[in-house]
């Protein structure tokens, strides 16, 4: 590889990387501004202040929104992991009769845009009296997340050696034991990948949350900025402090687990 060419490519990558980060830096920059310089049209405007963070953390039920998001997201991740791994096991390892049909139906779900489901889902949740409840988001989020999880997990399960399966069955290992003790431990990278992706999508979901959580005490974090945009019209710094509080923890979490996430994706790619 010519050294000169490598240098140029790296330079382009660095420049693009910096440009890519401007919106994120801008967000942090505005959150550090007082009302006096909040409308300064530059990326960075001095002086910095942390006042906005103490304003939003003391005045608002942000913690409540954070808790709501956490409950909905964690419950969804757990349900998706359990239900999807059970199904992928049934389809891929047990090769149940009708597996093809079940898998086909799940693939169809993958192609259904949420836009087309939001009206009937709102009616259904109304009938179930699930509006303004955690179940009202956990149910649909799980339903929409499970198909993708099954596709990913099935690709991993398909690689599971048939001989080990048969040996285990002959040794008197039942289907449940086979699942728990033998198959599940071998697909941990896939489970990690699915968990991280499901966490990100549920945590950030906006459309259904907007429709289902109309009561203030039940709102999830992505709905918080709408609640406060009017209140902080004259002090955008406070609104942007809320944005930082919404975005940055998830980004830090991703950085912490990105090794697991990328490893799961790469391994899945080679198998799929």
């Amino acid at each position: 590889m010519p050294v000169l060419k490598r240098g140029w490519v790296k330079l382009v990558l660095v420049v693009l990387g910096v440009i890519w980060m401007i919106p994120e830096l801008y967000m942090i920059s505005i959150s550090l501004r007082s009302p006096a310089n909040a409308f300064d049209p530059h990326l960075i405007a001095f002086p910095f202040t942390l006042l906005n963070y103490s304003i939003v953390l003391s005045q608002n039920p942000l913690i409540r929104y954070f808790d709501n998001s956490l409950i909905v997201t964690v419950a969804t991740v757990v349900i998706v992991l359990v239900v999807a791994s059970l199904s992928a096991f049934g389809i891929s390892i047990l090769r149940l009769r009708g597996s093809g049909l079940v898998y086909g139906l799940l693939l169809v779900t993958l192609m259904v845009p949420l836009t087309a489901l939001v009206v009937p889902l709102a009616i259904l949740l109304g009938q179930l009296r699930w509006i303004n409840t955690y179940e009202g988001l956990i149910g649909p989020y799980s339903a929409l997340g499970i198909p993708f999880a099954i596709v990913v997990l099935k690709a991993f399960f398909d690689e599971f050696p048939r001989e080990i399966h048969e040996a285990a069955v002959l040794d008197g290992c039942g289907a449940w034991q086979l699942f728990r003790m033998v198959v599940l431990p071998t697909v941990r990278p896939a489970l990690g990948f699915v968990a991280v992706w499901q966490f990100i999508t549920s945590w950030n979901e906006f459309f259904l949350a907007l429709v289902v959580m109309t009561r203030s005490s039940m709102k999830t974090l992505p709905l918080a900025p709408m609640e406060y945009s009017g209140m902080y019209m004259a002090n955008p710094g406070a609104l942007f402090a809320i944005l930082v509080i919404i975005a940055v923890p998830l980004i830090l979490m991703y950085i912490a687990v990105q090794r697991v996430f990328v490893a799961g994706l790469l391994e899945g790619a080679i198998k799929g």
């Binding site: 239900v83 079940v102 139906l105 259904v112 489901l117 259904l124 149910g139 799980s142 339903a143 499970i146």
Partner: peptide
């Protein structure tokens, strides 16, 4: 008994995907 493995996914699909599509 093995079909219990795919039952939860099918039930969730029926309630949150198939029924809404039929309703709409």
């Amino acid at each position: 008994f093995h079909h219990l493995f795919v039952l939860p996914a099918l039930a969730i699909f029926a309630l949150f995907v198939a029924y809404p599509i039929g309703w709409v």
